[in-house]
């Protein structure tokens, strides 16, 4: 199915969010996720099933002021 990851259209096979992150190469422990604007915790990722058109945000630590 096609979803958006950080606004880019992406094809994924996996349906579970945790599996999709692995498939897409997001293997770092220092990432946080939000699906369709809602925070999804690490623990919740195995419970979340993706749907076509979902908007996934994957964020990581960055310098800031």
């Amino acid at each position: 199915m096609q979803i958006k990851v950080n606004s880019n259209p992406v094809e994924v096979q996996a349906e579970r969010l945790s599996d999709a992150l692995q498939e897409l190469g997001f293997t770092s422990a220092a990432i946080a996720t939000a699906l369709n604007g809602q925070f999804v915790s690490r623990e919740q990722r195995v419970e979340i099933t993706l749907s076509p058109g979902d908007a996934l945000e994957v964020l990581a630590p960055m310098q800031g002021g």
């Binding site: 220092a30 990581a60 630590p61 960055m62 310098q63 002021g65």
Partner: peptide
């Protein structure tokens, strides 16, 4: 110190900074 979050690319690059 203050920090932020930004979009991660597959493969990860933010870990070193953190």
């Amino acid at each position: 110190v203050t920090v932020s979050l930004r979009r991660e690319s597959a493969g990860g690059s933010g870990d070193g900074f953190w």
